[in-house]
Structure formats: C-alpha cells, structure tokens
Design a binder for these strands. Structure first.
Lengths: 273, 273
DNA sequence: GGTCCATATTGGTCCGACCAATTTTCCGAA
DNA sequence: TTCGGAAAATTGGTCGGACCAATATGGACC
C-alpha cells in the first residue's frame, strides 16, 4: 500500500523512536553522524538527512563542530504530535484528550469568526453539511468523518490561516486516534439531532455566540464517546469552588504517561525581578 | 551576531522565497535538483538538504523519480508562519491579526484548564507575574514581554502539551511582529491595572470562567494597541445581525494580501452525498 | 588552579558514480 | 489516426571518499 519508506526516512524514524523511548535523553549528545552511519549500516548522507528532518521537528539540535543534541519535547514543533500518538504502542489517551481540548477551543473560536465573516454560500454549505449529522440515513460509521469535515469547514470559513494550518496537524492525528466510533446509544442519536438543530438554528440567525456554544457541545459529546479509560471518569478528589458547572465535563488534563514523561519539565519559574 | 547561515540554509531560504513570491506556483514542478545546484552554484547535496527542509515545512513535496512540486500554502505546516511574517518586506498585518485571534482563543481555553488543574504554587506564581503588569514600577517597554510570559505560564499551567507546542510556534513570531509597544495613553495604564485586578481576583477565587474572560480582555487590549493600519478600522459595509456586540472588536480576518494570496483556495466543497 | 594552544572530533560541503522510480518519447498494432 | 506499450531520458535516493571549518578535548605552561 504505502510507498516503501526511503532509507533516510527509516533512519529518522529509528532515531526518533530512540529519543522518544528514552535511549537518548534531552540535553544529551547524539552519537556522531559517522558512528550512527556505521552502526546502522547506511551512508553518512542518509543519517544526515534523517537528522535534518528531526531538527525540523524540533527534536534535535545540530551544531556545526559540536555534535547533535536532543531537545526537550516541550520545545519541539507541533508536528511532533504526529509521532507521539503511538509511542507506547497503543494510542496515548492523555494525548488524545489534550488534542480534543485544543480542537474544541480552536474550533469554537473559529466558528465565531466564521459566522461573523463567512459568505452566505459558505454558511449554506455549512448548514447542509451539519444537517447530514441529524439525517437518520447517514450511517453511524460516517459520523466521525462528517464531524471532521464540519470542523474543517468551520476552520476554513473563519478565514484564519493560522487556525487552518494548526488543523492540518491536528486532524490526521485525531482521525487516526479516534477510529471507528462506538455505537451511539438509543439516546445518543437523539442528542446528536438536538446538537444539529442548535447549530443550524444558530447559523441561520448568524448568532456567533450561540454557534460557538453549539459547536462546543457537539465536540464535547464526541469526547465523551472516547473509549472509557482512566481519563473518562474525572477523579477529582477535592472538588473545588467552580461556579460554572457546565464546563466540568472535560477530561482531566494530566501529564502524558509513558516514557516521554521525563521530558515534561515543571512550568518555567516566574522571573525573580 | 547570529551565526552565519549554512549553505543549505541559504538555499532553502532562497527557494522558499521564490515559492512565496510566486516564482514557483502551487502544483508546479520545481526545477530538478541538478539544475538548481548548477544555477545556484552549489553542490546537489546542499540543494537536497534544502528541499528536505522545505518538505518538512510542507511547502514542497518530493517524489522519487518525479520531480519536486510546490504545495498549497493551505496544506503547509504551522511552522510556515515563521517564514510568512516578512514575506512582503514589512510584517504582514493580516497575519499578525490572525495570530492574535488564535492566541486569544488558545490562551483563554488554556486559562480555563489551568485554573481547574494548576497547583497552588503555580497559581501563586501566576498571580505574582500578573501583578507586575499593574505595578507602576514596571517599565512600559517590558510590558509586552511580561504579557508574553504570562501567556506562557498559562499555557504551561494548563498541562496541555498540544497547546504548549502550538505556542512554541506562535510566540516568537508575535514577539517579533509586535515589537516595542506604542506608549500607553493616560488611560491605558489605568485600564491595564484594571485588567490585572480582574485576573488576580479570578485566580484567587479559582473561577475558571472569570479567569478566561479576564485573560481575553487583557489580550484584546493588546491587539487594540496594534499599529493603526487598514485592518484596525473594521470596514464592515453591511452590518449584520449580531446579538453579541462585545466581540465586535476583532480585526476583520480577511485573506492575506501579498503574493501568497494565490495560494488561498476556496473552502473545500461539501461532500455531495 | 587557570590559561592557552595543538590536536582530535564533528558537522558542512563537494565530487562523481550508480540505482530505482517516474516521466517522456516514439514506434508499431488496431 | 489513435492507442498501447516498450525503450530512453529524466529525476530523486544512496553511496563512498575527500576536504574544510567550527567546536571540543587534552596537555603544556605559567
């Protein structure tokens, strides 16, 4: 199916894995290009190309004369999330939850911008797409894809290139991570139809605030349908004062588990003066 | 000052510029590596390395046997915004406005998450940093940096790696684009102090919703202080029904001007069935 | 112990060659 | 003429070896 990966690609993948699983730790120096080439049995040029790719990913820093060093995951490029999903083997739930959080923020904001600036045809197109979610004829297996396309549409309609580029990175990872949806319960389909009506009505009125909230609700449901895991039952030991209980549903965003945890440094300290 | 750029870096910059200014258009084939090497007077390997970097940026696609082709800006990596800022010569105002929009969305969301999960020390550190904004002893020239650090702190405290990585890309571009602030008017400092009190109060109560709104207000002011340009006077010809006038201040997110406009394709059409 | 310099290490670039995937050219069959 | 397919040209991928320049290392010297 997929084209055979080039040699430099394989090498890049291998070094990337060794970094992510802790073989090479942040701040450490990587073996010299010549050594790696010898060890992997490939030409030095291939190793070079691999390192250049990893440098663009923000995973390593190459310094002429000095060796290459591993950088902290915190300082990498967003693109790194493409490579983070399956680091432990199975999709990392914490990362997926964080992606969904980010997607919700950005999409809600984009929806607001979109309603404020989108042309009537764009809006009509969006309404048509949204209505498919409520249509009983749409197969359940297609729902995730349709939702994904709605988010795309909203993002594009916002006219914000930055959001679009961000989505370019987020979408494929989420699509792969979420996979086929769990079957909607008896009530699930009804709730979905309800969300659809809310979005449609908000769009019809060009009501930015309402659209934002409606889109948020839709995406929240999506997250709730995530495979039940340690994250889905918010284990808040000491409930805190929170005057807005509507927003309590989000998965608790704890730090990523697996090997990469070691990259997570404490928040940068506040300046002393 | 800055280290002399490597040869492959120069080549990458040059090809990137030629793509962004329209010399090579999306979908077109780039000259063969051997030709480019000859034309630029460098070794083919250097051209190769440059192309690999541009491929990681999502600007070109390299296919073994077939040439390299230019990709649409819409499909590039977020990292491309680092290179987009100065394409026309001066900082692109539309892009900066879009960056500020994106930053506001993400930071507001991160603030919510942060309040819900941050430890008390983290919160205290945040409050300390925020209070510096209101302190009359803080020089005006330092205010942008302090705000930038507050956003960093909020982002980190949210515990969301995706948001952190996104910020890694956004922050340097915004810091460079905004540059030294325009002097605050007589009322400006007072308004700032007011924002600071709002954030501090919200943090003290661990009120997620209030914190989110307060942070939003702070960032909005920042955008308002952007250099007056064609963007800052929202030229909305036909005012539309919008029941939430509080949010009307955002710069109208029109398409990017300059040569790159040609990359902006219409929103992807809704599926037909 | 600290400074400074010769040397080793290491990334950056170049040359020339060959392989493999793709594209283009062109000729013969329908 | 048109279409299909084989041959040739084009083009990216990898290799090996060589030299330069920036950095790191270690030891002599003060």
């Amino acid at each position: 199916m997929s084209a055979a990966p080039s040699r430099s690609e394989s090498v890049a993948d291998r070094i990337r894995d060794e970094i992510l699983n802790g073989t090479y730790k942040p701040g450490e120096r990587l073996p010299a290009e010549r050594n790696m080439a010898g060890r992997l049995g490939v030409n030095r040029g291939s190793v070079r190309e691999a390192l250049v790719k990893l440098e663009q990913l923000g995973l390593v820093e190459i310094r002429r004369g000095g060796g290459s060093t591993v950088r902290h995951l915190h300082d990498a490029s967003v693109e790194i999330i493409r490579h983070l999903l399956f680091v432990g083997g199975a999709p990392n739930h914490a990362l997926v939850a964080q992606l969904l959080d980010a997607e919700e923020m950005v999409t809600a904001g984009a929806a607001r911008l979109a309603v404020e600036r989108a042309s009537d045809p764009e809006l009509a197109s969006a309404r048509g797409l949204v209505s498919r979610l409520g249509d009983p004829r749409t197969r359940e297996a297609d729902l995730p894809r349709v939702i994904s396309e709605i988010v795309d549409l909203i993002t594009d309609a916002s006219g914000n290139l930055v959001l679009r580029l961000f989505r370019n990175t987020v979408r494929p990872v989420l699509d792969e991570a979420l996979g086929p949806p769990r079957p909607l319960g008896r009530g699930g389909r009804r709730v979905l139809a309800q969300r659809v009506r809310a979005i449609d009505a908000a769009l019809a009125r060009r009501d930015a605030g309402a659209t934002e909230e409606a889109v948020r609700s839709l995406l929240r449901d999506r997250r709730a349908r995530l495979k039940t895991g340690p994250d889905s039952r918010p284990a808040r030991s000491a409930p805190r004062k929170n005057p807005d209980p509507r927003r309590m549903r989000r998965a608790s965003p704890k730090e990523l588990p697996w090997p990469a945890t070691r990259f997570l440094r404490p928040s940068r300290p506040a300046p002393t003066a």
